[in-house]
Design a protein around this nucleic acid. Structure first.
Lengths: 161, 161
DNA sequence: TTGGGATTGCGAACGGTTTGCAGTATGATG
DNA sequence: CATCATACTGCAAACCGTTCGCAATCCCAA
């Protein structure tokens, strides 16, 4: 069976080996942001003889051909997600570790303008928001950040995963 | 001579040892975003017998008491800057490595609203923009990002360092 | 001045990631 | 379909930034 990502790899002209097929499968099935070790763990369920070095090498390769994207969530290791056209960012629930993706055209516009005003052309950027659920926002102790909610009309599109 | 940061440390009730004084000195003098190795290098110019382990420990300590702030610029190592009340972010010149700080109340507002709309209270966040100078934006090859400059009135305050 | 808890330097260990090497598989070719 | 050069894999060692255990040392309050 040819997984979605495997097809993409073929399009990009990559040589498809057994282990690459397995990894493509794993990544196609994933709907979260696994790190290398996790990908390796899942791959091992399909084929035990895949080494972690190969997973590292394959992730780098897939990143290079823009089939997947590296996400740096601030916890020492690299995480990955499928590459996608729509720019989005991540809100990390510091209580549960859950990651929520969101996009905001408004944000993109401001960002573009800031860079332009400073005399720069953007080649990349990243935004992460760390937060706790509004409900049980009671007994937590991380460098809180004043400034209550403000601003104009609605606009951001959240998509949990 | 008592450096600015040393005074701050005393206020916070820290025990001031010789090496901490030197490190505070170095950080007071710095107007960039040095990593630990760089702080150690500069400290060694003042007193040769400071070990890098002490620098690591001291940086963590200063971070804990909020005298300095850790900045993760995406290059494997931790960088630091003096803690300051005003929220700002970083634009990294991928050609020269220069780092430009900027602040945008507008951006903060949107960010707050997004988090709020998703049901979260922000406890931290970070934004980095990677860019190349508009002038010589010719022969570069990093995952460019469509979407030309757009958006409304000026608002961002840039401060180079 | 003295004493004891905090701090230091050293080197070893850590966790994530990369790499050299020898062996193996791939898919292009005849 | 067999052959072959090339690219890929597994393993273990090395790497890099960072942390830690330990004995020696320092700071500061009494």
């Amino acid at each position: 069976m040819t997984s979605r990502l495997e097809a993409l790899c073929l399009e990009k002209g990559l040589k498809m080996t057994g282990q690459r097929r397995v990894i493509a499968q794993v990544l196609s099935d994933a709907d979260d942001h696994p790190d290398v070790e996790e990908v390796h763990r899942r791959a091992a369920l399909i084929d035990t003889r895949i080494s972690i070095a190969t997973v590292y090498r394959t992730m780098r390769l897939l990143e290079d051909v823009e089939v997947i994207e590296r996400v740096d969530l601030g916890d020492g290791r690299a995480r990955y997600e499928e590459a996608s056209a729509d720019h989005h960012h991540h809100l990390i629930d510091t209580r549960s570790g859950r990651i929520i993706e969101f996009a905001s055209p408004e944000l993109e516009a401001i960002k573009e303008r800031i860079a332009h005003d400073l005399g720069y052309k953007i080649v990349g950027h990243r935004l992460e928001i760390y937060g706790v659920p509004l409900d049980d926002a009671g007994a937590d102790g991380q460098g809180a950040n004043g400034a209550g909610p403000n601003g104009a009309g609605p606009n951001s599109a959240g998509k949990e995963q």
